[in-house]
Design a protein around this nucleic acid. Structure first.
Lengths: 354, 354
DNA sequence: CTGAAAGCGCTAACAC
DNA sequence: GTGTTAGCGCTTTCAG
């Protein structure tokens, strides 16, 4: 590890000059020629700054704390973390991730992150929920991810459920479906309202009437299958927008029992299906991915913007798009983009991905 | 943040004494009464050491680097990371996680971890593979996780595929199955050999002959289903040990088409099924979980043992067991424990979980 | 037994 | 423009 001291002595200047140059604060303070030489030797020696030393001095670590309680239990957490890490990395930050089991050790984990000097926090849940922000986080730069602050006081990044449903439903309409079912979830998830509304509005905008008999909200297993089966009997759908893969599967099962072919007699769009489900069990299923990667990415950008208000983040206006799904033999494009909504917009306006 | 200086002045001693006491190096160096008072004020002030300052001085950060390229793409990564984090946390360490896309940025990410001063590395793959250890990691404390060093020079933590298969097959035997099929994977995975051997030996130990016609290795989709179907036609199995959930599903499908009931006519054990698969689509499936959590846990313990050879890790001999699966209505116990094998044993002997 | 002092690598006033 | 100096919080000789 080569140090500033080394560069200083080799170049014949002082450490402070080196520091100025290497932090790009030399404009009008250090003679260009000197600056050039400093940079040259720094480069020649492969100098990398020591983040620890800097942090000890500045009180800033360029580390973001990522707090979640479900990192291990859902396959989606990875997407969020990946997005957050990518953004953080581009911004010169690192991510320090902790997971809490329930709420018991949450305070401890947060305390540990503070000891390590994180500059701010991301507080993530998997699948949008109302959360109470822990007291220990209230005075810190904080962004909620895939979660909603019950008090509505903290910034959060959430999927745009309305637009997810609107787009999905519109795809089904465009594909020529006449009777599009909505297979929702009976649990009181935040996503429910937005999705149902998106479904409704897409129909409306296409001049279709909303038909109650095409809608059902179900839980799991037998009763769920029964409910979807009833819907098939009463409404004879030729398209279905499904809350998730379990619900999509009920449609597959019902179709199979009636001799209907998915992709021909019934088109199905499902949200956020497990890869294995789509690949192995559900051919012809069109998948709408929730923007996990994007949520993580934006959350990190937003958080850094809170930590460094003066920093120019123009280059980060839009996150990288999610990798496309593996090619499936689907009747409609496999990828439908989503929108992210911020409570407090990064730049004073909401923006959408396209 | 209260500092040692503060404690020193309040107690009327010097910082060095405080440091001695708070690092438990006071034995025979500091008068017990003084030590007591130091500890008392430290406690009263809620003192927490500043890891940055310590690290700057000692050159040790108590941070472990976790390098993986598939954190986001598999639902299992979380388990490994969770285990590693739990162990690290108990040992007073943190985990700094980076993910690499392919190999392009791997060197960069590793360099970044080094700059942040990690004390050692875990290099993880998802689903045991032969890997070439990057040069940049060769001179560091290193443990491979769910991966095998092609040269056999570095410690690694891997699932004990033999015992997974042995146990699973034995369960089927104990459940009364007479003709137990092995539905393997056609890809050249390290797991294949061990599992097939475990299957074979379990049969042997039960006095059964190994029957080639009960074995098939398949890829995906149509051809796979066809192969499993052929196996059903020629060998009429009443039990099946399946490499993973996709393969388990082919058995379900074949059984369904023949009017056979899973859990009565055919018992099925599958490895590492996606939760949603088991819950929604595959009732009566017995799942053998790969020990992801344990692998992460052990890897972290092993790594710390390399970093601090003198540290007493007796309390960490056995990792916590994986959380039990949610209760399923299965014909056999849902949880089958696994064994971990280390290339270089932590304490000179291999151990098994029970 | 305890304290003074040096220094890890870096930044930021403040002189010159 | 550049160097000197002080100090972030901690550990670790080395005197006393």
């Amino acid at each position: 590890m080569t140090t500033m001291k080394e560069i200083a002595s080799r170049t014949g200047v002082s450490v402070s000059t080196v520091s100025l140059v290497l932090n790009n604060r030399d404009e009008g303070r250090v003679k260009p020629e000197i600056a050039r030489r400093v940079r040259a030797t720094a480069h020649a020696l492969g100098y990398k700054s020591n983040p620890l030393a800097r942090s000890l001095r500045t009180g800033k670590t360029r580390i973001l704390g990522f707090v979640s309680e479900e990192v291990a239990t859902t396959p989606y957490a990875g997407g969020i973390i990946l997005g957050a890490q990518d953004a953080a990395s581009s911004l010169g930050y690192m991510l320090l991730t902790v997971n809490t089991d329930g709420t018991s050790n949450e305070a401890d984990e947060i305390a540990t992150l503070k000891r390590y000097g994180v500059d701010g926090f991301m507080y993530a849940k998997m699948s949008n929920r109302y959360v109470d922000v822990p007291d220990s986080l209230r005075d810190w730069p904080l962004v909620l991810v895939d979660a909603t602050d019950r008090e509505g006081r903290f910034a959060s990044i959430e999927p745009d459920e309305f637009r997810i449903a609107y787009d999905a439903t519109k795809r089904l309409i465009d594909a020529g479906c006449e009777r599009i079912a909505y297979i929702g979830c009976l649990e009181p998830l935040i996503a429910q309202a937005g999705r149902l509304e998106g479904y409704r509005r897409a129909l409306e905008d296409a001049g279709r009437a909303f038909d109650e008999s095409l809608v059902t909200n179900v839980l799991n297993n037998g009763p769920a299958l029964k409910a979807v089966s009833d819907l098939f009997d009463r409404a004879n759908p030729d398209g279905a927008f499904c809350f998730n893969d379990a619900r999509a599967w009920y449609v597959y099962e019902c179709a199979a029992r009636r001799g209907l072919t998915i992709g021909r007699d019934v088109s199905v769009v499902g949200v956020d299906n497990h890869r294995v489900f789509a690949e192995t069990l559900a051919p012809k299923l069109t998948t709408v991915e929730l923007p996990h990667y994007e949520m993580g990415y934006w959350a990190a950008v937003k958080l850094v913007s809170m930590i460094e208000p003066d920093r120019d983040l123009a280059a980060f206006e839009r996150p990288k798009t999610t990798a496309p799904l593996p090619a499936l033999d689907v009747p409609m494009p496999a990828k439908i983009h989503c929108t992210l909504v911020e409570k407090e917009s990064v730049r004073g306006e909401n923006r959408s991905l396209d």
